[in-house]
Design a protein around this nucleic acid. Structure first.
Lengths: 213, 213
DNA sequence: GTCTATAAACGGATAGAC
DNA sequence: GTCTATCCGTTTATAGAC
């Protein structure tokens, strides 16, 4: 589906794929509500009516993109990590995998597929519930792994919900700001951020930090 | 300006303040583009035309809120931290201060003043440039502090831009998910997240982390 | 599959009465 | 300071020709 993934041979992608790529970029840049179907049609190079030959509605288009995004996360990040028994190793795989996944598609507007996942407010109640449930399952997977690490005495003295939030924050913020023309390589960015996240949540002795007075 | 700040005596706040509070909450929940002036008027309890007696335009309303939000950050977080000479102490104050600031206004939709700062795309070019410049100044302040820490050999082996991003991600993600009815106290959340952020970026010996194969 | 044309509703913003 | 009424551009979505 994603144009950037095609390599070598000239990209031959159908109208449907073109629509998804351009819609995701526009939703990401301007936001869902500020993007009109006419904007998307123009980006693709067809008319608004032509666009409706492929998609039933603007909302269905967003839902399709969100579902695809969650599918990538589940298949590319969660599934491989689930095969890892050791929780510290598993957490390392999750953090690196999710960061890699975010960096894999680098557009001038960040990572559209990750960013549009925050537009659940634009979906009808039942569609929003579906996406939220899949997000909650991912979050529970991360927290469960942190719980195991804590049970093994390998976690820093932190609440596992807070640790999950911190890790998510680091990853999702990357998706917002990263641009393909950056100074650092993909691997450098992943290593830096994963290092900070893992060092932050994993215990390395009883070194506690003081709050400022 | 902010309703939650009033204590003791019954809150007597003017129309203008009511408008700001409700607009910020709506912009935060639905997004700027998805919020109509009629929505805001209804929340305040006046008509759309009545609303225009107080605000010149929808965009000016957003800009006012964003400017106020940056003012709070600069006065409540940056200014006190600038008085601290030691860079590690200063970073600790910044992280705790910013987290406290985010937690100070806790609505059922997170922290509106922080979240609406991501709507610069809805502003005209010159207004957007003003807000972006103030954000960049804050970011440079954090990174400069990290540079000093690195020069003192007290930073983990990370790029200071990446460390800034990680810290921001942790704080901004909190602003998105936190709800006032939570299980943990404000201090617990601040301490947990600040601990993770500081432990992540500060060096505690040459303990490097390996990437998964 | 893509177009022109158009329906029906909603958006920001204003005029002018009270 | 708040209202009713209204202007006018834009929006989602559809009808129907080619």
């Amino acid at each position: 589906m994603w144009q950037e993934h095609t390599t070598g041979t000239p990209a031959i992608i159908g109208r449907r794929e073109q629509i998804y790529v351009h819609a995701a970029q526009l939703f990401c840049t301007r936001g869902f509500a500020a993007t009109s179907m006419a904007n998307i049609a123009e980006a693709v190079g067809i008319t608004k009516a032509g666009l409706y030959h492929f998609v039933a509605s603007k909302e269905e288009l967003l839902f399709t993109l969100m579902s695809f995004s969650m599918e990538r996360l589940e298949e590319d990040v969660v599934a491989p990590a689930q095969a890892i028994a050791d929780p510290v190793e598993r957490l390392t795989a999750i953090v690196h995998g999710h960061l890699q996944s975010v960096m894999q598609v680098t557009t001038p507007v960040g990572n559209p597929l990750t960013i549009i996942l925050e537009e659940t407010g634009a979906l009808s109640a039942d569609k929003a519930a579906q996406i939220k449930a899949r997000k909650a399952a991912y979050s529970a997977f991360v927290r469960g792994t942190l719980d195991e690490i804590k049970a093994n005495g390998q976690l820093a003295d932190v609440d596992t919900r807070m640790a999950t939030s911190a890790i998510m924050g680091i990853i999702l913020w990357l998706a917002r700001w990263h641009r393909p023309d950056g100074r650092l390589s993909v691997n450098d960015i992943v290593d830096n951020l994963a290092g900070i996240a893992l060092r932050g949540v994993l215990g390395s002795g009883p070194a506690t930090l003081e709050r400022p007075k």
